[in-house]
Design a protein around this nucleic acid. Structure first.
Length: 558
RNA sequence: GCGCCUGUAGCUCAGUCUGGAUAGAGCAUCGGAUUUCUAAUCCGACGGUCGCAGGUUCGAAUCCUGCCGGGCGCGCCA
């Protein structure tokens, strides 16, 4: 990152020298072709209009005036109007040393400056177990949170529980019916009831434990029983899926504490509420929403919007620097009304970002798996975890951009074959660990420092290792890729995306496997062994750090 | 009907924000590689009118408009 800044600055200096004052932001991209260098800029193209010269000419003039630090840049060239920069070996070696020194901290940065970010994640209604789609949201949110933490933000992960309202009523009614059915009564199933198998099982557990003593119990009992049972299940699912939740907020608390009433009063005072057709409306259309929204129904009960507004106001009052809501795409109709509410309450829209993730299309060996929440037919996160495993599932969930649908083939994910990218990355890590194990065995008692695992590489004083011995194309490729890792993480943090991490790891694993096939680490030549051990240790550290961001274990052997 | 997301190789997708070099991977298919650190690996080949049509531009997968296909949502359900 410092390197990019350094190059940018030198370009700016050169621009000044040729007396160009106005220019767009200088973009450094990573060229597709190796011959085009490590970084390149198209700045000359953007100046053609102003200077009325062809890009080649502008680029040539710039190159002539460019003064770059020779420790970083070995060569600068003009090619078809582009300016290409080639990094020095020295820099690549220095970076490897940094990786070995910083280990788990390689890739970290202080860009976040300790700013506080609150992430609202998962927040599924406790009316049933988490399903695959929620798993994607959870894996995505958790990974993004990890990335932001590594970038120096203080992240608070929060789950908001809608534990009251119509849906809870329906849940309670449904459980009651299932319970009474088990006691042999014939009862009409509620119209909007939850038909899932899990409620029948829940009823059975209740009956097995406590018999028929709840036969005459009021609906509140069943709501209470069902929701706490489900919430416990959700907590356990998330925990086993490696998702950390720092704070659990309950909708009912906002009511109890009078915060919902308070926020309504506030909105009313500002003139953003009005009555029509017996209901109370929020004037959200005034803030960019398509239409106004009901906030209190004709029957006097409040909609979820009311408490959601109170919840968001509560977030603002807790003084976070940024707020991020991560929702399933099926909630996108909700985005504008929440943003409207934020504006209406007088808070900055910029502080709140709402990220939507698209749904998961589940299949098995290419055949789609039908899902319907209404009929209670869905594949739960628990089932996926049991069948596929936490790590593989998390990798798949984070592999695709969040705003495109995710195809998830259960059979493919389960396969331990080349079709499955997860093993490919893990295998690279395991192979490296295995090299170190071997190296340790080779160690002779007379000369314990000659070769060995990480500890030995470090003890031997990294500076003494002759990294210049790493000169093959495969080794160079790896060194260049390692240099990119901090950039990849930073770019994820900027764009609130995570899929570049798995993609990067696959690329790094691929470069490593190529190297491994062509060259031997534990060769005859002691200095070369040391240099290569340092190199693969660098790869191992980066693979480890990347997998860690995804919440995945890095296996020592497979 | 309206709104959001999406359409790139046989399949799954990067690349689109910030327009640039012959459009990249993986899988599948075909052909090869291991007496040596894990073959869950490697090397090579094949494969694309970037949904379609216009427009802007020296230059468009990328920006604009229209159309077509897929997903999701659409006033007192969440």
């Amino acid at each position: 990152m410092e390197i990019r800044e350094e190059i940018k600055k030198s370009i700016e200096d050169a621009l000044k020298k040729i007396k160009v004052k106005k220019y767009p932001e200088i973009l450094l991209e990573r060229p597709k072709e190796r011959e085009h260098g490590d970084f390149s800029t198209n700045i000359a193209f953007s100046l053609t209009k102003e200077l009325k010269k062809p890009p080649q000419e502008i680029a040539k003039r710039l190159v002539k005036r460019l003064e770059v630090c020779p420790k970083i840049i070995e060569k600068v060239e003009e090619a078809k109007g582009f300016i290409n920069f080639f990094l020095t070996e020295e820099l690549l070696f220095e970076n490897l040393i940094q990786i070995l020194k910083r280990e788990k901290n390689y890739g970290r940065s202080e860009i976040g400056k300790g700013e506080r970010i609150q992430i609202e994640m998962v927040s599924v209604n406790p009316t049933g177990p988490l399903h695959v789609g929620h798993g994607r949201g959870a894996a995505f949110a958790d990974t993004l949170a990890n990335i932001l933490e590594v970038m120096g933000y203080q992240v608070e992960r929060e789950y908001y529980i809608n534990d009251i309202g119509t849906q809870m009523e329906n849940l309670g009614k449904s459980l009651r019916v299932r319970y009474l059915e088990l006691l042999g009564e014939k009862v009409q199933f509620p119209e909007h009831g939850y038909q899932g198998e899990y409620l029948i099982e829940m009823a059975r557990r209740l009956k097995d434990r406590e018999g028929d003593k709840h036969r005459k119990e009021k609906i509140e009992f069943f709501i209470q029983y069902a929701s706490s049972d489900i919430i416990e299940g959700i907590r356990k699912d998330l925990k086993d899926f490696g998702i950390r939740i720092d704070t659990w907020k309950r909708e009912s608390d906002f009511h109890k504490e009078g915060k919902v009433k308070e926020v309504l009063k506030n909105l009313k005072k500002k003139g953003y509420l009005y009555e029509r057709e017996g209901a109370l409306w929020f004037r959200s259309s005034q803030f960019g929403d398509e239409k106004d929204r009901v906030i209190k129904k004709k029957d006097g009960s409040l909609t979820y919007l009311a408490s959601d507004i109170a919840y968001h106001e509560d977030k603002f009052k807790r003084n976070f620097d940024h707020l991020i809501d991560i929702w399933g795409a099926d909630h996108h109709g909700y985005v504008e009304r929440i943003r409207a509410a934020v504006s209406a309450l007088g808070y900055s829209k910029e502080t709140l970002d709402i990220i939507l993730y698209q749904l998961v299309k589940l299949s098995r060996s290419g055949k789609p798996v039908a899902m319907s929440t209404r009929r209670g037919e869905f594949v739960t996160l628990r089932e996926v975890m049991d069948e596929i495993g936490k790590d593989t599932s998390r990798f798949f969930f984070c592999m695709r951009a969040s705003n495109s649908q995710l195809d998830f083939d259960l059979e493919l994910a389960k396969k331990e074959s080349p079709e499955n990218p997860v093993y490919y990355v893990e295998y690279a890590h395991a192979r490296i660990s295995s090299i170190f194990k071997k190296a340790k065995e080779k160690k002779t008692p007379k000369d314990p420092d000659k070769s060995g695992p990480t500890g030995q590489v470090k003890r031997k004083k990294i500076q003494e290792i002759d990294l210049k011995l790493l000169h093959t194309p495969e080794e160079k490729s790896i060194l260049r890729l390692l240099l990119l890792f901090p950039d990849v993480v930073a770019s994820c943090a900027r764009s609130y995306q995570v899929h570049s991490i798995p993609n990067y790891l696959m690329e790094l694993a691929s470069e490593f496997h190529s190297f491994y096939n062509k060259h031997r680490v534990l060769s005859e030549e002691e200095n070369l062994i040391q240099a290569r051990l340092a190199l693969v240790e660098g790869v191992r550290i980066v693979l480890y750090n990347g997998l860690k961001l995804l919440g995945i274990e890095a296996p020592e052997k497979m």
